[in-house]
Simulated assay, not measured.
Amino acid sequence: MNPQYFSLEKLAHLVQGECVGQQDLQVSGLASLEHAESGHLAFVNADKYIEPAEHSKAGALIVTEALKAQIKTQQNFIVVANPYLAFAILTHVFERKHTAKGIESTAQIHSSAIVADSAYIGHFVVIGKNCVVGDESVIQSHCKIDDDVEIGKQCFIDSHVTLTGQTKIGDRVRIHANTVIGGEGFGFAPYQGKWHRIAQLGSVHIGHDVRIGSNCSIDRGALDNTILEDGVIIDNLVQIAHNVKIGANTAMAAKCGIAGSTTIGKNCVLAGAVGVVGHINIADNVTITGMSMVTKSISEAGSYSSGTPMLESLHWKRAAVRFKQLADVPLTQLMKKLDHIQSQIESLESTRLRNNYDD
């Protein structure tokens, strides 16, 4: 594939930045400071990258005004307020885009389905009754779009994705390979030693500009819908159970698991492998650090953690013994000992003050 070239001036205009140096420099792509060549554009977003930038072979750098003043070996710049954001915007310029339109001959589409002329339907895709696929959406090979599913405009559905349960998807949504959305929620009623399946009658509603990684499961609701609001981003290998609601612009890293009927607020961040129990509420603007277990509602914004940090094995074993010993001591007995120690400290302090006064 032949590279596409853009002038430094044009790229600066796309990110509303100032072009400094050789405005007609032809740029063929983005690269890291370490591996960039003369036709590449790299970015610098912190003082710690000034030395690598000094030694980089990049043809031009995306920097702030303050960083530019510290880099003496480079002459070509795009000056912006936020280099990382500018880099993110320019990745779309150099991204390989899917330009094909139409329906491949091996696809099976029910006669009642509505597929936009500008959409692309890949090989061996199956689309059921009363489905809708919006303008410029792309559905890659081997996807199953079950009855009554609606897909908005400019969506990207990667290979082997299953959309079922009357799922409704907004515009510009990206869903990556092998993800299942709208599958049956994990609902069972125990009775006389057996589990009795509860039919899941709800759906999944996904807003605009949502990104869902590969190998995720988002279950439909038992009665109400599972909801992902606008701008939610989800990494690979995430499980979202039935009736969960996730607020706008919340981000979840890989291997998070959210149990049923939990509500997570807007602008939250769940780091890798966070677990959340069911039927709780998490406020807006909450960050939960990696591998934490959330067992109760969080009502205030902030950062929360749980779990034991990594230690050397010998230290961890000693700490585990201490934890066990602490658990074996009745809480009332422990509190009495602490009260006794506090009284002794206060008595000693009082004696010391009297002695100083007598002197």
Score class of each variant (00 low, 15 high):
residue 135 D to N: 14
residue 115 V to C: 02
residue 226 T to I: 09
residue 134 G to Y: 08
residue 252 M to I: 01
residue 179 T to H: 04
residue 163 L to G: 07
residue 58 A to W: 04
residue 44 V to T: 04
residue 321 V to D: 05
residue 337 K to L: 12
residue 273 A to G: 12
residue 282 I to L: 10
residue 85 L to N: 10
residue 205 H to P: 01
residue 285 N to Q: 10
residue 32 S to D: 11
residue 154 Q to Y: 13
residue 9 E to N: 14
residue 220 R to N: 07
residue 105 S to M: 09
residue 164 T to F: 05
residue 52 P to M: 08
residue 337 K to P: 02
residue 354 R to C: 00
residue 49 Y to L: 11
residue 236 N to M: 12
residue 107 A to M: 07
residue 51 E to I: 10
residue 206 I to T: 03
residue 159 S to T: 13
residue 280 I to D: 01
residue 274 V to T: 05
residue 127 I to K: 05
residue 279 H to E: 04
residue 329 V to S: 04
residue 231 G to V: 05
residue 245 K to W: 11
residue 231 G to R: 00
residue 293 M to R: 11
residue 95 E to Q: 15
residue 288 I to P: 04
residue 205 H to Q: 15
residue 56 S to T: 13
residue 35 H to P: 01
residue 333 Q to M: 11
residue 190 P to E: 02
residue 204 V to S: 02
residue 95 E to W: 07
residue 312 E to L: 10
residue 198 I to W: 03
residue 51 E to F: 10
residue 203 S to G: 02
residue 19 C to A: 15
residue 189 A to H: 12
residue 289 T to L: 07
residue 90 L to F: 05
residue 2 N to Q: 13
residue 206 I to A: 00
residue 351 T to G: 02
residue 256 C to H: 01
residue 245 K to G: 06
residue 87 F to S: 06
residue 84 Y to A: 09
residue 69 A to N: 10
residue 186 F to M: 06
residue 304 Y to E: 03
residue 53 A to Q: 05
residue 83 P to C: 06
residue 32 S to N: 11
residue 256 C to F: 00
residue 290 G to T: 09
residue 267 N to G: 03
residue 180 V to C: 04
residue 352 R to K: 15
residue 337 K to W: 11
residue 303 S to T: 15
residue 299 S to R: 14
residue 323 F to N: 10
residue 95 E to S: 15
residue 294 V to H: 06
residue 38 S to R: 14
residue 239 Q to K: 06
residue 281 N to K: 15
residue 33 L to N: 11
residue 142 H to Q: 12
residue 197 R to D: 08
residue 228 L to H: 00
residue 346 E to P: 05
residue 86 A to H: 07
residue 91 T to N: 06
residue 130 N to D: 13
residue 269 V to W: 10
residue 38 S to D: 13
residue 348 L to Y: 06
residue 277 V to N: 07
residue 211 R to S: 14
residue 332 T to W: 10
residue 191 Y to C: 09
residue 192 Q to F: 10
residue 198 I to S: 00
residue 47 D to W: 05
residue 240 I to N: 00
residue 172 R to A: 11
residue 276 V to C: 00
residue 38 S to Q: 14
residue 77 F to P: 07
residue 280 I to W: 04
residue 322 R to T: 13
residue 126 V to M: 09
residue 309 P to Y: 00
residue 283 A to P: 08
residue 112 S to R: 09
residue 131 C to D: 01
residue 60 A to K: 01
residue 8 L to F: 11
residue 296 K to N: 12
residue 300 E to Y: 07
residue 45 N to K: 15
residue 166 Q to E: 15
residue 127 I to F: 09
residue 203 S to I: 07
residue 24 D to T: 13
residue 331 L to A: 14
residue 170 G to S: 05
residue 104 E to T: 07
residue 11 L to F: 01
residue 228 L to V: 08
residue 303 S to N: 08
residue 163 L to I: 06
residue 130 N to G: 02
residue 4 Q to I: 15
residue 274 V to L: 02
residue 14 L to N: 12
residue 274 V to M: 04
residue 9 E to L: 15
residue 340 H to W: 06
residue 76 N to Q: 04
residue 195 W to I: 02
residue 11 L to N: 06
residue 312 E to Y: 10
residue 156 F to I: 12
residue 133 V to E: 04
residue 153 K to R: 14
residue 81 A to M: 08
residue 112 S to L: 09
residue 155 C to M: 01
residue 354 R to E: 14
residue 357 Y to Q: 15
residue 289 T to I: 07
residue 215 N to S: 14
residue 223 L to M: 13
residue 279 H to F: 00
residue 258 I to T: 01
residue 274 V to S: 02
